[in-house]
């Protein structure tokens, strides 16, 4: 039986290692996450995170979880309004679909990341890290800005916002 050259073994290992690296590179990157914000919580124990998740590429992706040091638990939620006008939150145990070519917007009165059991008081101007976990793209950590409770958004979904703010206070 021929003796295997140690050099050949080394070469084989190297090829295998490079092969692994190539596999990693072939995995999808996490989609870009922008505008992550938490309105300063009015309640001491819970807070919501809103953000825009960009196009995950042609295969799409799913946001399957999130974690942060500022809260004991983090869940993915959607606010829904039933036919009788009752608003409630639904925990999305299967995650949030991030559509191929589109992405998804987490916004007031809709999809959001919910922080439960806040361990740090969040005040306007603060910034904290939130790690989002995607099924394909893996983890990405983003900075979340704590914004004023009041102001900014309008109506939850509607965005006629600031253009109406100019002085129509004619009494």
């Amino acid at each position: 039986m021929t003796r295997v050259s140690p050099w050949l073994v080394a070469l084989a290992l190297l090829v295998a290692a490079v092969g692994c690296a190539d596999d990693d590179a072939a995995e999808a990157a996490p989609p870009e996450v922008t505008g992550a914000e938490t309105p300063e919580p009015a309640a001491p124990d819970v807070a919501a995170v809103y953000a825009t998740i960009g196009d995950p590429g042609p295969d799409g992706d799913t946001l399957v979880g999130a974690s942060t040091d500022v809260a004991e638990r983090v869940e993915l939620h959607e606010s829904v309004i039933d036919d009788d006008g009752s608003a409630r939150m639904v925990e999305l145990e299967d995650g949030i679909d991030v559509a191929a070519g589109e992405g998804v917007v987490l916004e007031r009165g809709g999809l959001h990341v919910m922080l439960m059991g806040l361990e740090t008081e969040l005040a306007e101007g603060d910034r904290y890290e939130l790690t989002l976990e995607f099924e394909r793209g893996g983890e990405v950590t983003v900075d979340v800005d704590v914004v004023p409770t009041v102001g900014g958004d309008d109506g939850g979904g509607g965005h006629d916002g600031q253009d109406e703010a100019h002085g129509d206070d004619d009494g």
Partner: peptide
């Protein structure tokens, strides 16, 4: 009060409305 989404957004909107009115 422990409602993180719709309740505070409604109240925040009404606060902004009050800020706009004399």
């Amino acid at each position: 009060a422990s409602c993180p989404d719709i309740c505070p957004v409604h109240m925040a909107n009404l606060t902004s409305v009050f800020d706009r009115l004399p």
